[in-house]
């Protein structure tokens, strides 16, 4: 029997998309790029020590004293390693990807929670997005969006979106049945139920999903750098490819610090949501 070549259909699909939907991709590219550059310009406009101070205060308010101290020490270390601009570049990419992932993911999760059919259809797609090796869609992304930060952001969105979709869906479905029943018995419409009962009670779970999405977005930093997304990923990549072990290590440390700061702060956000 001949080899079954599914691959050629995929190639044909990519080619068709490239030929026919170019204006769409061009529009998306412009939009995403504007977002990334906007974040970047804003983050680099503020002097590093001012931004560090702001983040420390934020960490203090949301996550407490020890996290605030860690934030201060960690971010100062990044600044002293002269990796601040790269870190802000990476942060811009992470923020952009996260914002897009949340804007699409949370509504999708809500939709899934309301209809079992949507749930059943979406689940395998999410599995696909999470487990398909990123390199496979990295190349089409480059074809659609050229090299640079934009295909990096797109690949990151694909990889990082599933957790917030799943956890939004789960959080809403986990709202106790008796509370739902009570709301229904008082004549709540579906919309009233969603906004005033289901979403508030699902909030801590949804925030856990947001946290997961941010973490996954950060984990794509190095892979995105391979297609020219820049930032800390580029540092690490250069370290690896040019055998500059020390440089790669510095970039890696900066990624870890950024990840831990973002993780601890967003995690506390979810926990404070839980108490009330």
């Amino acid at each position: 029997m001949d080899k079954l070549q599914i691959g050629i259909y995929f190639e044909a699909l990519i080619e068709w998309l490239t030929n026919n939907l170019e204006p769409v991709f061009e529009g998306l590219r412009t939009g995403i790029l504007a977002l990334i550059e906007g974040f970047e310009a804003f983050l680099l406009f503020i002097p590093s020590y001012v931004l560090i101070a702001i983040l420390v205060v934020l960490a203090w308010k949301i996550a407490g004293k020890s996290i605030a101290i860690f934030t201060a020490v960690g971010l100062l270390l990044i600044d002293l390693m002269w990796l601040w601009p790269q870190t802000m570049q990476t942060l811009s990419l992470v923020l952009t990807s996260t914002v897009i992932a949340l804007l699409m993911g949370i509504p999708l999760g809500i939709w899934m929670s309301q209809h079992d059919v949507v749930d059943n259809v979406t689940r395998p797609i999410l599995d696909f997005m999470q487990t398909m090796p990123a390199f496979v869609y990295l190349i089409p992304a480059v074809i659609f969006f050229d090299l640079g930060e934009v295909p990096g952001a797109v690949a990151t969105v694909i990889f990082a979106m599933p957790p917030v979709v799943r956890l939004t869906n789960l959080g809403i479905r986990q709202v106790p049945e008796d509370v739902i029943e009570a709301a229904r018995s008082y004549g709540a419409t579906r919309k009233q139920m969603l906004i005033r009962v289901q979403l508030p009670l699902a909030m801590s779970t949804i925030l856990a999903g947001v946290n997961q999405t941010i973490m996954l977005a950060l984990s794509m930093v190095v892979i995105s750098a391979m297609i020219g997304a820049g930032g800390l990923g580029e540092e690490v990549l250069r370290g690896v490819t040019q055998m500059e072990i020390g440089k790669g290590f510095e970039g890696g440390i900066a990624v870890v610090i950024l990840a831990m700061v973002l993780d601890r702060i967003t995690q506390s956000l979810g926990n404070t949501g839980k108490t009330k």
Binding site: D178, V179, A182, A183, Y186, G187, A188, Q192, K276
Partner: peptide
């Protein structure tokens, strides 16, 4: 009609006052 439930089924994220006013809020 209004219903009272065995396990109370109060809204944990609402204050007592908001819970009591729930039917009115929905209206």
């Amino acid at each position: 009609m209004a219903m009272v439930f065995q396990n109370f089924a109060l809204f944990p994220h609402y204050t007592v006052g908001e819970n009591v006013a729930y039917g009115l809020e929905v209206q």
